[in-house]
Every structure is written in structure tokens, then in C-alpha cells.
């Protein structure tokens, strides 16, 4: 069974039909990339997987998004619990303006997942280790998160998400505000995380998709044009639009 199975999914912003009949199956413990020109609906699709689009007024959806066989758009789904299982990292690093430690502990505390200091300490350490921030930061845990570099902030945001133990991580152009060196670092981190999490990443950068992902979805104007192994999308796509896009003829 696929980890995430989207079936005939449509999304409207008011009258604007942003996602048109999308069907896609995303496999567990792989990196799936979503590429396509600006405005094609990549972020919208990604944000449908943890229902964060619900917070935008006037959004309507049709169809299904199944995670482990359960349609998350069912009425009886606990959206907050869903979001705990499906973490999200945003385009601009958005740590809270509190200490590094408190950022990672935030979800644990507020969701009352853990209250004992030992467990929180332990989870903070484990989360920071898994994003390779621990060695540098273990003595500065109580400094403000805003003192970090952008790359470190983005790592911290990933750690903050990991701390509440999701099994899926959605990333929306996580490297677009970073320089090339920092981008490579975050890419390596994602490749490491793939062994434990199912990762879906939206990217503008086709080289990035080619470097890190196993599967790639190509979208255009709200439609899913092609979805298959990354190698195939970049070397031998079956649709003409995909070929035009990946070879740089438009977009």
C-alpha cells in the first residue's frame, strides 16, 4: 500500500480551480519531488497533504487524500493529530523568536506530548542530532533562534517538526533562501532523513530534484502531467510537456 494516495483530488480557491483531478501514489521512505513552473499548484498540492490549506478562507476540495488508507478529508479526522503525523517545512525559515531549545520543545509542550524535563531534553537532543545541529549548538541552546544563520534556522525548523514524531515530512522549496553550499548541506540532510521518513519536496530547482529524489511529479497549470521515477522524468519522459520543461525549453 502506498503511504500517501491522492485520488481525483480537486481544490478551488473561491472560483479558481487550482488543482485539477490529481491522482498520485507516494511511496514510503523515499523522496518524492514535485516540479513545475511557478503557479502550477505545487505548493497547493503539498499543503493539501497536511490540510494547512484549511486555514485559507474560501478553499474547497473534492476527492481523496489517503494516508495509510485513511482519507484525511473525512469529517471525523482529527486535523491536529494529522498534522502531528505530517510535518511541514516552509520556504522561508520560520523559527519562533524564542530560544533554540524552546523552538524544538514547543510542539512537545503545547501538545502535551511530554511534560517531564528528562523526556523533553532527550527529544530536543535527538531532534537536533538528526539535523546535525547538536554538536554546534549544545552549549548555545538558550540563545535566541534568530541568532542562527538561515541554513541553521532551516535545520532548526526541521528539528522542530521532527520533535513531534511525524512520519511524513513535507518541504516547500526549503532551500530557496539559501546559498548553494547551504543548499547542498540541507540536501544531504534530506537524503539521511529519507531512511526514517517519507519525504515530499517541492522545488524550483530541477538539479535538486534530480540529485535527491527517487520519484518526480511534474505539474502544469494545476494538472499532474507525469509522475514516475526521477531518472525516467529527466532522461526519457513520456509526455512532450515534461520533455520541454526538463530540457529547459520553457518555464
Amino acid at each position: 500500500m502506498s503511504k500517501i494516495e491522492i485520488k481525483n483530488f480537486n481544490l478551488y480557491y473561491g472560483n479558481f480551480h487550482a488543482l485539477k483531478d490529481i491522482s498520485i501514489s507516494i511511496e514510503e521512505k523515499r523522496i518524492t519531488a514535485m516540479i513545475g513552473p511557478s503557479g502550477c499548484g505545487k505548493s497547493t498540492l503539498l499543503r493539501s497533504i497536511n490540510r494547512i490549506n484549511d486555514t485559507i478562507e474560501g478553499v474547497k476540495t473534492e476527492g481523496e487524500v489517503n494516508i495509510e488508507g485513511v482519507n484525511i478529508y473525512n469529517d471525523n479526522v482529527d486535523v491536529d493529530f494529522l498534522r502531528r503525523n505530517v510535518g511541514m517545512v516552509f520556504q522561508r525559515p520560520n523559527p519562533f523568536p524564542i530560544s533554540i531549545y524552546e523552538n524544538v520543545a514547543f510542539g512537545l509542550r503545547v501538545n502535551r506530548i511530554a511534560s517531564s524535563k528528562e523526556i523533553i531534553d532527550e527529544t530536543v537532543e535527538k531532534s537536533l542530532k538528526s539535523v546535525l545541529l547538536w554538536d554546534n549548538m549544545k552549549d548555545k541552546l538558550h540563545k535566541s533562534a534568530l541568532t542562527l544563520t538561515l541554513e541553521q534556522q532551516q535545520r532548526l525548523c526541521i528539528a522542530r517538526g521532527i520533535a513531534v514524531a511525524p512520519h511524513i515530512i513535507l518541504l516547500d522549496e526549503p532551500c530557496s533562501s539559501l546559498d548553494p553550499v547551504a543548499t547542498r548541506e540541507i540536501e544531504e540532510l534530506m537524503i539521511r532523513l529519507k531512511d526514517d521518513y517519507t519525504i515530499v519536496i517541492v522545488t524550483h530547482n530541477m538539479q535538486q530534484a534530480a540529485r535527491i529524489s527517487q520519484d518526480t511529479a511534474f505539474m502544469l497549470l494545476g494538472k499532474l502531467i507525469e509522475f514516475s521515477k526521477t531518472d525516467k522524468i529527466f532522461t526519457n519522459p513520456s509526455k512532450k510537456e515534461t520533455d520541454d520543461y526538463v530540457s529547459g525549453r520553457f518555464g
Partner: peptide
């Protein structure tokens, strides 16, 4: 972005 970051951790709207 702060609101979205918090919601995406499974924190409820009121929290």
C-alpha cells in the same frame, strides 16, 4: 508564517 509553523506541528488553533 508563525501561525502556520505552529499549526503544522499539530497545535490546535486556540493553542
Amino acid at each position: 508564517s508563525f501561525r502556520e509553523a505552529s499549526l503544522s506541528l499539530g497545535v490546535t488553533r486556540w493553542q
